[in-house]
Amino acid sequence: MVQLFKGFSSKRKPETLQEIERDKVPKHIAVIMDGNGRWARRRGLPRIAGHHAGMKTVKKITMAADELGVEILTLYAFSTENWKRPKDEVDYLMKLPQEFLSLELKELVEKNVRVRMTGWKEGLPDHTLSAVEEAERATSGNTGLILNFALNYGSRKEMIEGMQLMYKDIAAGRLDPDSITENVYDSYLKTSGLPDPDLMIRTSGELRISNFMLWQLAYTELWFTSLYWPEFSKEDFHQAIREYQQRIRRYGGL
């Protein structure tokens, strides 16, 4: 496949972990985990089989990020638009956090990983919410990798809500409009307290952001691959980081 532009990968390169510069590993990596359904369809399987396979990839990539010293791994698990999908698929997706955390929470605690959720808890089924909140409680004292699930998250809604909250604080006299800066606005977003992603990875060959961290990705390096999420490996993750390390981040300068 022809490389469409720098940052699109269609083939795996030989694994050379030693080439990764440990002092230049991105602190915050965000991932749009796409292609579960298409992966399943190509194998004659139901879409939910793809989501189940994708859950296994979540563990692999979480462990790979932890090994490299990544500080934050944000995974786009379910968007505010995903509620439009068929009910049986949504119901299954809402069971995955409970299944994943019931299997992996003990190891996440042992690995010093802290679980966090970015999104709206309102509207989530009780079993989904209780599993996430239990994981947040159980790992709240951990100081290693932050495993941040963007769950029931949508960036436009987040930005509008942030502006509404700021307006309320202005109206109540708690916020001076002239004091609003980028950092002040950041504090009103769901990602408050987290630095912007350094690298964003999207699988499945789609070349778009899909309402994911529109404000936060302003200067993030983007990396796309045609691999579906269930087949995305530790070696592919390393490849994305190596290519990230070859780029020069100018932030609008020279």
Rank of each mutant, 00 (worst) to 15 (best):
L175E: 05
N112F: 07
I201H: 02
T220M: 06
D169F: 07
F100I: 00
N148I: 05
R137M: 12
Q239Y: 00
A49I: 08
S102C: 12
V2A: 09
Y188N: 01
S140M: 11
K111R: 15
L207F: 00
I146Q: 13
M33A: 10
T80Q: 13
K168S: 12
E67S: 15
Y228K: 10
P230C: 02
S9Y: 12
K121R: 15
R116M: 14
A64L: 08
E235S: 10
A138T: 07
L217A: 06
L73P: 00
S155K: 02
E136N: 09
A138C: 09
Y76A: 04
I72E: 00
H28D: 00
K59H: 12
I170L: 10
Y228F: 15
P26M: 13
K84W: 09
S130K: 13
P177W: 05
E134A: 15
G37D: 11
E19T: 11
D178G: 13
E71A: 07
R202M: 11
I29Q: 04
A30M: 07
Y188A: 04
E104Y: 15
T225V: 05
A64R: 07
M33R: 09
A64E: 15
F224E: 01
M163Y: 10
P46T: 10
G252M: 05
E19P: 04
E99N: 07
M166N: 06
K24S: 12
K59Q: 13
K157L: 13
L96K: 01
R156L: 12
I160D: 06
D169T: 08
G54K: 02
P125Q: 04
L214N: 08
I248M: 09
E15K: 14
S187Y: 00
E104F: 14
M1R: 15
A64N: 08
I20G: 06
G252E: 06
G205F: 01
P26Y: 12
G50W: 01
T74V: 03
S10R: 05
Y167S: 14
A171S: 13
A218G: 08
N82D: 13
S233G: 08
V25R: 03
K157R: 15
S226C: 06
T128K: 02
I160K: 05
E243T: 11
P86V: 06
T220F: 04
L73R: 03
G37H: 06
F149I: 14
A30S: 13
P197S: 03
D91L: 08
L227H: 15
E104L: 11
L207A: 03
N112V: 05
E71F: 03
L175A: 10
H28N: 01
P14M: 00
K95E: 05
L254F: 13
S155Y: 01
M1Y: 15
M163Q: 03
T143K: 15
W229Y: 08
K60P: 03
I29F: 04
W215H: 10
